[in-house]
């Protein structure tokens, strides 16, 4: 249907409509009035509730501990320059992990061939734009040097979160002038590892996305 015809059909429906009285202007967002909390502590609790793990005070040594526990495997990572501290990818390489190229070709065939190489990605390494104390979420933004797949396709997702990026709640971050959540092709709130409760309401982790989510808190 032509755009104008479509819109005018909607307009005439509204004119005749008996919708309940609404506001003439957009009521706009509401930032919730929540009790003050220790942001790190609250974030840690909320993350644990959604089956994520927070590493505090370990620094990059946390990466060594995780690889020791789960053994080395293929890594998909953000470029070093996009991570809040340097040397993180190197830790994986030193431990014997192989780095997978995260740049997907534009051609249809090249794309599929490249992505077939993602099947067994074990580790994903990304930064985070923000985190929410109320919900235990982290915010991951796409862009140059930041493959979306790094937070999505691996079995274990490892996030480097600067400790001054924890906000009280999603609305506290979203209404910040600097958040610019529509400025990237993809911004995702990740709240724990991939999960489903489709079979008999029993929660199981790692359906299509990561089975484990490790957030490493790094100094700002």
């Amino acid at each position: 249907m032509e755009r104008e015809a479509f819109l005018s059909r909607v307009r005439s429906a509204i004119d005749l409509s008996r919708l309940p009285e609404g506001s003439d202007t957009d009521p706009g967002p509401l930032v919730p009035d929540l009790p003050p909390v220790d942001l790190v502590e609250r974030f840690a609790n909320a993350l644990e509730t959604v089956s994520g793990t927070l590493h505090v005070g370990e620094g990059l040594a946390a990466i060594d501990h995780i690889i020791e526990r789960y053994s080395p495997g293929p890594l998909l990572a953000w470029d070093d320059g996009e991570l809040p501290i340097t040397g993180a990818s190197q830790r994986f390489l030193d431990a014997g992990c192989g780095l997978i190229d995260g740049t997907v070709p534009s051609s249809a065939d090249g794309r599929v061939d490249h992505q077939r190489g993602y099947f067994d990605v074990k580790y994903g390494l990304t930064g985070a734009e923000a985190a929410f104390a109320e919900t235990g979420s982290i915010v991951v933004r796409s862009g140059l040097g930041r493959p979306r797949m790094a937070s999505l396709i691996p079995l274990i997702h490892i996030v480097l979160l600067p400790e001054d990026r924890i906000f009280r709640s999603p609305m506290h971050w979203l209404t910040e002038p600097g958040s610019d959540a529509a400025g990237a092709a993809n911004v995702v709130y990740i709240t724990g590892p991939s999960r489903t409760a489709d079979i008999e309401q029993k929660i199981t982790l790692g359906v299509h996305g990561p089975r484990e989510l490790h957030v490493i808190l790094v100094p700002a």
């Binding site: 919900t135 993809n186 911004v187 995702v188 709130y189 990740i190 709240t191 724990g192 996305g209």
Partner: peptide, 11 residues
């Protein structure tokens, strides 16, 4: 859930 696991904002 306070948020669904993946809240995906596509622009």
């Amino acid at each position: 859930q306070s948020l669904t696991t993946y809240t995906n904002l596509i622009t």
